[in-house]
Design a binder for these strands. Structure first.
Lengths: 144, 144
DNA sequence: GTTATTGCAAAGGTTTTGCATCTAA
DNA sequence: TTAGATGCAAAACCTTTGCAATAAC
């Protein structure tokens, strides 16, 4: 285990939210413990295999990670307006998922449940920056 | 509506499985109705907005589409070995998802449930081509 | 005629990789 | 000493975009 790896683990453990490789790279540089971007990518891949972090794909083109140690499993809601990530857990859904896999005779390796929402009621008016442009696009398309 | 767009719609409707932009581009070329890759990308985006196709992100770096017309909603299992896509539906899970969103006072825009499985029991022995390399990697890492 | 669509090539953004160098054990 | 990690720059990869030409209505 190299110094850079240790730095990355420390940084990951200190995070309570979600982060990208790019973001981690930026923190470490800012904090005077620079690690090259390539190494951050390689490190996150290793940490993910080791279940130190968990990677998610929220369909915006960038992989996001979060600490996986000392945390319980959860799923995510992502606001399509402001990209806020809200976590939730639902044991019943978990059970039903497992049952579906069992019914097919498969083995569950991983599962990913993401609800894309508009968090209108949660955010104060105006804080959801992308709403206008989305609605403009929708109208312009004449379809939705 | 241009000829290319019509071609794309026809091709999409003829598909029962999942496909990428690259794949659609290849068919059309092969079938003597070539449409440039850029246009395929643009067309699929339009068709998705119009709910003619549905796009999915199965975490392998490429967006996949499927016909959305005359089909009921369903979720997916993806085999991590051979990348087979198996569809399933579960009304109870759907209800519970909606309930989670309601409980937060949000509005559901979309949702994505993908179970990553090993389809061992389903595929005949040997047809899951990626299994060996995955297990080799896992062992090599000394972690899993 | 006006507006939207196409094709091409170029750029975009994220992630991976080759290779020489360096580090940890 | 030796396998593995690092940094850099270059490449890979999928996707989007600028722009001039074209097609639809």
């Amino acid at each position: 285990m190299t110094g850079q790896r240790r730095t990355m683990v420390r940084a990951a453990m200190a995070q309570s939210g979600h982060f990208t490789a790019e973001e981690m790279h930026r923190w470490l540089s800012r904090d005077g413990e620079p690690v090259s971007l390539a190494t951050v990518y390689r490190g996150l891949a290793v940490l993910e295999e080791a279940a130190v972090v968990e990677g998610h794909d929220f369909a915006d083109g960038t992989r996001r990670y979060e600490r996986a140690v000392d945390r319980e499993h959860h799923d995510h809601m992502v606001c399509v307006d402001c990209r806020a990530v809200i976590e939730f857990t639902n044991d019943r859904i978990e059970e039903l998922q497992q049952q579906v896999v069992d019914d097919h005779g498969f083995t569950m390796q991983d599962h990913s449940l993401t609800l894309f929402v508009e968090c209108k009621a949660w955010h104060a008016e105006g804080s959801c920056s992308r709403r206008e442009e989305r609605e403009a696009r929708r109208k312009a398309s004449g379809i939705g």
